[in-house]
Design a protein around this nucleic acid. Structure first.
Lengths: 286, 286
DNA sequence: TTAATAGTGTCTGTGAGACAATATGCT
DNA sequence: AGCATATTGTCTCACAGACACTATTAA
């Protein structure tokens, strides 16, 4: 059909090339013209985003209070339908911008989490939900959009304590998102995404502590963060007055995206959520 | 709406509970009855599976040669449309069974990889593809299904060498699948899924070597595999004749699903594929 | 002055990685 | 006999983790 190669280990960029489709034969063109999509089951597609941010050393997630049925009055992850002409990533970016009014000089991270499509997960019909995760530095509470009576950041602890009920299968999506984010901090530099442009090592450590629910040794953490190449870059400044103690040196995020070696969670923080929740073992009969 | 709690760190199982939806008010029932899904963009949903297995120390993936347009004659990942009454996981399991004729006492692993939904990825229209990964021990080549002229396992190396052209955006899906699988071997016990019920440490080491494209020190690998709790269980048997050298002790897979500590790839095997391909950094202006 | 925080230093145990040495069975 | 393979052993270096100690600021 064309000449684009298969992705190889020696040419990793080729993985992003899709084989363009060019109908060649008349039979092929006739098939495409006669193709009737209505004989296949049709569904609706939404994107939902777990937008995480850090406030006062506590992990927060943005929720909206649903203004309409179904689950009217319930808190839910923000999201919406995918438009016909946009990619899934673009739909997630659009929703993220709508919900948070990003000003353009914001820094953040967005990635696909997974897709949830059980029949019955939405009483309106078969709706496939592609869930995303966004990590943002502290941003203001958003204005309520047309779809949301209220929208605000909730501390995860408060959600648990007040036993807030989330709409649809969002309890599971949020749990998966938390586990994914906690795991990603281990082997990527994404923790800096939660921090302001300049941050102290204590700021950075609090990100890990909030995400893992564990206290970390400040001395060992500081040593490790500075040893890891490209993680943090020391500035010739100090911050004073932010706390009661001595002034702390300021850092910026480095160039690295992966952490070598990894910053592994202590064992007691490993099973905060069930690992590998999405995996299905076909049979384990050993 | 109901009383199911939010997932908590102390009760990880609660993450799997979906809030059941029970319409309460008359307005709610009226809304649902009047709900018109046709005003939302509708798409079609498929599942595709990258089915990996190990043959002769080489990693293989199952491909089908497409019998119909589009991409007729091209090799592609097996898959099909999601039926209206099945979950995504069930659809993937069904396709897996159809393609491999699993006999029931097979052992394997199936997990969701990610979702690919760019407009234009399929010339027939907007089709959202939920991709899965399956890991299987050596299984026979499957019979061709109705949708496939031919189906067989391809060695990854041969795909690269012969510059096989994959249909749709399957080059990227396969590359993502390879990267995911390679990464999972680091911190899970999934490598044993590629092995027969009883295997030698060299069998297991060859799984890692094939997946990472690197030679590993056999002495260090054996020590590490046996030290890691629950990874392998020594049997009171040896296998002889499988190779030219001394007889090798046989092992079975242990109970553990996670590896502590992790079996990290050597640095030269880390960038076999681009890490974090799905992630999108909103802006990195530091 | 007191308490809290930042930063440095030290010690130990574990494990990865390199590599040697020996044992066993196939050809 | 010779060779390929399996298994055990040894040594070194890096790093995680625990913890002590000093310096600096706010209350």
């Amino acid at each position: 059909v064309n000449t684009v190669n298969h992705p190889t280990r020696s040419d990793p960029m080729s993985k992003y090339k899709m084989n363009p489709y060019i109908p060649e034969s008349d039979a092929e063109k006739a098939y495409l013209e006669a193709y009737d999509p209505s004989k296949y089951p049709s569904v609706f597609t939404t994107v939902d985003i777990a937008i995480f941010t850090m406030r006062g050393g506590r992990l927060h997630v943005l929720l909206i209070e649903r203004a309409d049925f179904p689950y009217k009055g319930c808190w839910a992850l923000p999201g919406g339908f995918v438009e016909p002409d946009e990619t899934l990533d673009e739909a997630a970016l659009r929703e993220l911008a709508e919900e948070t009014s990003l000003t353009g000089d914001q820094t953040g991270h967005l990635e696909q989490l997974g897709t949830y499509g059980d029949p019955g997960r939405d009483p309106r019909g078969r709706i496939i939900d592609v869930a995303y995760i966004a990590l943002l530095p502290d941003v203001p509470d958003p204005e309520a959009g047309s779809d949301a009576a209220h929208a605000r950041f909730w501390a995860i602890e408060d959600l648990v304590e007040e036993q807030v009920q989330l709409a649809f299968d969002h309890p599971r999506i949020l749990a998966d998102a938390l586990e994914r984010a906690a795991g990603k901090l281990e082997y990527t530099t994404l923790a800096t995404t939660f921090c302001a442009e300049e941050f102290t090592l204590t700021d950075l450590r609090r990100v890990y502590e909030a995400m893992w629910g564990t206290a970390l040794d400040k001395a060992n953490f500081a040593r490790k963060a500075q040893q890891t190449d490209g993680f943090v870059v020391a500035q010739d400044k100090q911050r004073t007055g932010g706390s009661r103690g001595a002034p702390a040196r300021l850092f910026k995020a480095g160039d690295a995206t992966d952490l070598h070696p990894a910053m592994l969670r202590p064992a007691e923080a490993r099973n905060a959520f069930l690992p590998d929740a999405d995996a299905r073992t076909i049979r384990r009969n050993r």
